[in-house]
Simulated scan of single mutants.
Amino acid sequence: MTTETDGSAALDPATLDQWYCIQNLAEIPPSGLTTRLLGQDIFITGGEALVARCGDRELPVRLRYGYLWVTLARPTPMCRISPRRMNRIAATFHVGL
């Protein structure tokens, strides 16, 4: 990460292109919530149609493995892992899914 002359942080484009897991879907209230990702405020709407916004921009979202994932820039494809393989990975690293 580098610092601009105005004091704001400039992130590498590859960092912005990644998908980030930001919230458990079961914990998003109907009224929505605000969280932060890489120094940016992200507002998540609750209810049936989940939308993530950063300022006035709607972010690409994915619902995977019971979580909400977002990216701040051009998204790279998310890998698709079968539930069976995900369970083996979780067991290997002792992670509860």
Rank of each mutant, 00 (worst) to 15 (best):
E58S: 13
G39H: 05
T34V: 14
G96K: 12
T15G: 07
R36N: 13
R57A: 15
L16P: 01
A73F: 02
S82V: 10
A9W: 04
S82D: 15
G96Q: 11
G39F: 06
G7C: 03
Q40W: 04
E48V: 13
Q18E: 14
Q18I: 04
C54N: 06
L16E: 04
T76C: 09
T2W: 12
T92Q: 14
S82Q: 13
P83I: 10
G39K: 04
D41E: 14
G46F: 04
E48W: 06
I42W: 00
W19G: 00
V95P: 04
S31I: 13
A49D: 14
L11V: 05
T92V: 07
S82G: 15
Q23N: 08
V70T: 03
A91Y: 07
P13I: 01
T2Y: 11
I42E: 00
A26L: 09
I28Q: 01
P29E: 06
Q40K: 09
Q23E: 11
A73G: 07
T45C: 08
G55Y: 02
P60W: 08
V51M: 12
R57G: 12
A10F: 09
L11F: 15
R74W: 03
N24D: 15
G46P: 03
L59N: 01
P13H: 01
T3L: 15
Y67E: 09
A90I: 07
L63V: 09
T35Q: 08
C54K: 03
L25M: 10
R53Y: 09
L25A: 06
T34S: 14
R64P: 00
I22A: 05
P60F: 08
V95Y: 14
M86C: 04
T45E: 11
E58M: 10
E27Q: 15
Q40L: 05
L59D: 00
A10W: 03
M78A: 13
Q40D: 07
T76W: 09
W19Q: 01
L72W: 01
A49I: 09
A90K: 11
V51T: 15
F93P: 02
P75L: 04
C21V: 05
I44F: 02
R62I: 09
I42P: 00
R53C: 08
D41L: 09
R36C: 11
E4R: 12
R88N: 12
G7W: 00
Y67M: 08
F43A: 10
G7E: 00
G7A: 03
A26W: 05
M1V: 12
